[in-house]
Amino acid sequence: MFPEQGEEYDALIKIEKQQGENTYKLSVPRLVKNSSGWPTVTLIYSSDDSDKNCREETLSDGTLLSCLPQSVIREEIVLNSAWEKAIDWISSKPLYEGVFEVIERENFSVEVSVMWETEVCLTFGRAEIIK
């Protein structure tokens, strides 16, 4: 099975900058396509520099070759404690939300990836935080 992803799922991710310098509030639905209700949230830091030997081009068959960042750092974040998650689950709270902090890294962009696990496949959404 292929994962489900795209603009439809990207639009489900709501990010608001908070008063703190690098603090953001994230809000996503708990359930998407009969998911388990426990979305996995990951911060992805990608370097602005790509592999020096890489050239982006389109091959004669239409295949697009693109360059990957030299460095990618992934950090899974937990928005709620186990106790808060239990309360949210019991009260059937529709959103998984909380506040997190982004560490500023020079020459890195930052995005958040949300994964909802279902019995059949995975569903992903992405949202850019720092370009």
Rank of each mutant, 00 (worst) to 15 (best):
M1F: 15
F2T: 15
P3L: 06
G6A: 09
G6L: 07
E7Y: 14
E8Y: 09
E8N: 09
E8T: 11
D10G: 03
L12P: 00
L12H: 01
I13C: 01
I15P: 00
I15M: 01
I15A: 01
E16R: 05
Q18T: 14
Q18R: 13
Q18K: 10
Q18N: 09
Q19Y: 07
T23A: 04
Y24G: 01
K25N: 10
L26D: 00
S27A: 05
V28H: 02
V28G: 01
V28E: 00
V28R: 01
P29I: 01
P29S: 03
P29A: 03
R30Y: 05
V32N: 04
V32E: 04
K33M: 15
K33D: 10
N34I: 15
S35Y: 04
S36H: 10
G37Q: 05
G37K: 03
W38D: 14
W38G: 09
P39I: 02
T40C: 08
V41T: 05
V41L: 08
V41A: 06
I44W: 03
I44C: 04
I44P: 02
Y45A: 00
Y45N: 00
D49E: 15
S50P: 06
D51Y: 11
K52M: 12
K52T: 15
N53K: 09
C54W: 10
C54Y: 10
R55K: 13
E56G: 06
E56T: 06
T58D: 08
T58G: 08
T58A: 11
S60C: 13
S60Y: 13
D61A: 09
D61E: 10
G62T: 07
G62I: 09
G62A: 06
G62Y: 06
T63S: 07
L64F: 09
L64N: 15
L65A: 10
L68I: 12
L68G: 13
P69Q: 07
Q70H: 11
Q70K: 14
S71W: 12
V72M: 10
I73W: 07
R74S: 14
R74C: 12
E75I: 08
E75D: 07
E75T: 11
E76V: 13
L79F: 05
L79A: 04
L79P: 02
N80T: 09
N80Q: 09
E84N: 11
E84W: 07
K85P: 12
A86Q: 10
I87P: 08
I87C: 11
D88F: 15
W89H: 15
W89P: 14
S91H: 11
K93Q: 14
K93G: 06
L95R: 14
L95A: 10
Y96F: 08
Y96N: 03
G98S: 07
G98F: 04
G98A: 07
G98Q: 04
E101D: 15
E101H: 08
E101I: 10
V102Q: 01
V102D: 00
V102L: 02
N107K: 12
S109V: 03
V110F: 00
E111T: 05
E111R: 06
E111D: 09
E111V: 03
V112E: 00
S113G: 13
V114A: 02
W116P: 02
E117P: 11
T118G: 11
T118M: 04
T118L: 05
T118R: 05
V120F: 12
L122H: 09
L122F: 11
T123P: 03
T123F: 09
F124A: 06
F124G: 06
G125F: 04
G125R: 03
G125E: 04
A127P: 00
I129Y: 01
I129A: 02
I130T: 07
K131N: 03
K131C: 02
